[in-house]
Design a protein around this nucleic acid. Structure first.
Lengths: 276, 276
DNA sequence: CTCGAAATGGAATAAACATTCCATGCGGGA
DNA sequence: TCCCGCATGGAATGTTTATTCCATTTCGAG
């Protein structure tokens, strides 16, 4: 019985586990597929649940869940759970403890404030991971890769993002121009056919930035907009919105998610252009 | 037996739990103190361990660990563990699954790249939470709160941070000046007695920024430096370094931690100045 | 429609586990 | 020094949980 088809070697890590789930997902009988689906969507619960709880969540009998573990190559549920319990630490090992300690410095202390910004940054990042549309991102990269000069616009609190994009493009030797309104100079006529515009702006939108996006779109240039609302002034043809919901604390936000998105966009474009 | 001293109400959340641990830590018998100490340092393992495992880790008998749970106000270990297992979800519900999905778009896809930046951002934030010195932060806030004009310097990849600080201070109506080197104009003589300088720079340091910090320090102005290495040019009297280790992915970093620190600093200063 | 193989759910069994109880040890006060 | 009371560890117990087995159902091929 050693060389049977079912004698698979059993996943050694959470990554292998997820891979296995998806690779044999479709070829499985119905109840097994229910198990696979539920576990895939609730990997994080495996370490802290009983067979019965997971089975109920998946809508199957406990024995079905058991058999599923064995199909995956484990000797049983316990062995599988052991793997998850051991791999459990890296998540937030003493992260919340650290935050706790920072907060304890006092209600209005700088440390407590920092803890809040760290926390909102973290939740913004998680949110971004779940809400970004890979297809939209891919489309944006394609548009910018094909452009002659990439024009960058972003003012007020969006300015740091635009500035960082300008730095990154320059580093990668990609033609880009930052429209920073120095001297109130409006360089919109620097945008020529074949160029593209990348704007960054959040509600309430800065009029100058919106105007620039509209004039570019009217001229037929492709426009990519990093923004925070789907119903803003960028819901019109010719403009490709990339949504990022940044959690703010008080009147300010830490821009973690926005900058991550921006830099990923820039590096993708850079990689693709320089390898062509 | 309702009004006995030992009839404590039992913690309802992880925070309350930690608080309770610390408040009755010193007053406990030896073995109980061992339990408290070990649990405090391994809060994250409680949800995924058995009594026996925790007891062994703490170097006590299982029954001692049991009694400790009851001292805390729980009916037993199971009740305590239930609390931790339930409180466990909010952290990363399907966060790692989302990242996994993003990565699967393809090795060099924009989504996969974004996932990497999100991940390094998150780890930078966690790192910052653990490495920041509340005392140093407090000192920096005090220095900047007492200053006349706050001068801001940061070029190249540090420029977005300096720019965001300038935006935040302006919003809060705090006198600040961004030294952005437009027109190669060096405004260092705008720094007068009573002012302070806040610089942002990372290794390899931009010479202009370093020079500005040195000239300010030489003139006796207080200088706060947001930077990434303790052994840089800011290891000298008169300069207060705030260290932030930003994980970078490839040649770029997402600046999440740096910006969080910067904005926390700015808001702290703003709050304190405007309430005075 | 019929047969056979695979799948399924539920009940029975076995293992792991939490919890309690009690005998023993240890330290502090008289 | 002796005694009392609390603290402690280990064994016994009862409960929860995993696991296996088997009767029944479902599905697909002929």
């Amino acid at each position: 019985m050693a060389s049977e088809t079912g004698a698979v070697p059993a996943p050694q890590s959470v990554e292998e586990f997820q891979e296995r789930l998806r690779e044999l997902g479709p070829s499985l009988p119905r109840r097994m597929r229910d198990c696979a689906g539920y576990l895939e969507r609730n990997v994080d619960r495996i370490a802290v649940s009983t067979v019965a709880q997971l089975a109920e969540g998946a809508g199957v009998a406990p024995s079905a869940m058991m058999r599923f573990c064995q199909v995956l190559g484990f000797s049983g549920f316990s062995e599988m759970q052991r793997m998850f319990r051991e791999a459990y630490s890296p998540g937030l090992p003493d992260y919340s403890t650290r935050l706790e300690l920072l907060r304890e410095e006092g209600r209005d202390s700088p440390s407590a404030l920092l803890a809040e910004f760290i926390e909102s940054g973290r939740s913004s990042l998680e949110n971004l991971a779940g809400s970004i549309e890979p297809a939209a991102l891919e489309a944006a990269v394609r548009v910018l890769t094909g452009a002659g000069v990439i024009h960058l616009a972003g003012l007020r609190r969006a300015f740091p993002v635009a500035a960082y994009l300008a730095y990154a493009f320059e580093k990668m030797q990609i033609p880009a121009m930052l429209h920073d309104q120095t001297g109130r100079l409006d360089h919109r006529h620097a945008m020529r056919a074949g160029d593209a515009l990348l704007v960054v702006t959040f509600a309430p939108y800065t009029p100058e930035t919106v105007a620039m996006a509209e004039s570019a779109a009217a001229a037929g240039l492709p426009v990519v907009a990093i923004t925070d609302r789907a119903d803003g002034p960028f819901a019109r043809p010719g403009i490709l919105p990339l949504l990022v919901a940044e959690a703010d604390f008080g009147a300010f936000r830490a821009l973690s998610a926005t900058l991550s998105l921006a830099i990923a966009l820039a590096v993708s474009v850079g990689t693709r252009r320089n390898s062509a």
